[in-house]
Design a binder for these strands. Structure first.
Lengths: 122, 122
DNA sequence: AAATTATTTAAGCAAGTACTTAAACACATA
DNA sequence: TATGTGTTTAAGTACTTGCTTAAATAATTT
């Protein structure tokens, strides 16, 4: 990617410059946002977040049953969600309960709202 | 995934049943939402959407220059965005201009708002 | 201490993603 | 009609993802 010879004769160079500047300002924010969205854009993880929002807390075993998935599969999703501060865990005996953290409620709120409407709304 | 023998003795069966029911109601919506989020969760595509929102319209060549990527790489992202009704295209001579569609403005609005704040906001 | 229960971790693999390069296509101009 | 320009398409490939199964860990019960 060096041969930028493609630029049209009629290209608006000011527009291109402006876009580059605008993008450079949000570069970091774009990375932070897509990092989080890539977690939420998985249907299993979105379901986990959705039920946790409704139920306060659930253990790995509960989620495995609810989602009809193996324990390790669920556990691996939970780890990703925990690593990115979407959920927290608390141990009680040998059971580990997961619950939503407040960190990303603002990001998640519009999604939960959409889900609670008709599917056509999306 | 059949051996559901894991269920804890102390499991709240009503809670699990309730969760399953709630999930089955949003099943379709979850699929529709994650389908769209998986597009937006790519930083190149989010940048494309961001500049299109600010600039009304841009051609493939402009975007290639703005993003510092090859033309085919950009074109392939645009196709995905077009297939999912995020953008539309209009031909003018041999140049193809892309612009944002209104279809998913509601989904995108919170992201653009976040990007226009500080990176810490995300 | 041994066995059981709840969970995590690790290795392996099939599928998906995003790029690259080369070729094809469509329109415009010489 | 040949050449150049703007774009798409296709094939190949490196990387990532999300599952599976098996083994490891940790707390509880026998």
């Amino acid at each position: 990617m060096e041969n930028n010879s493609c630029i049209r004769k009629e290209a608006d160079l000011n527009q291109i410059k402006r876009c580059k500047e605008q993008l450079s300002e949000v570069e970091e924010a774009v990375g932070a946002l897509t990092d989080k969205l890539s977690l939420v854009s998985n249907s299993v993880r979105l379901k986990i977040l959705y039920v946790l929002q409704a139920e306060e807390r659930l253990c790995v075993c509960d989620l495995s049953d609810i989602l009809n998935m193996t324990i390790p599969a669920v556990s691996q999703h939970l780890r990703k969600l925990k690593d990115r501060d979407f959920v927290k865990s608390e141990k009680e005996g040998q059971t580990i309960f997961y619950s939503l953290r407040d960190d990303h409620r603002e990001l998640l709120a519009p999604f939960f709202n959409l889900l609670n409407r008709q599917p056509e709304a999306i």
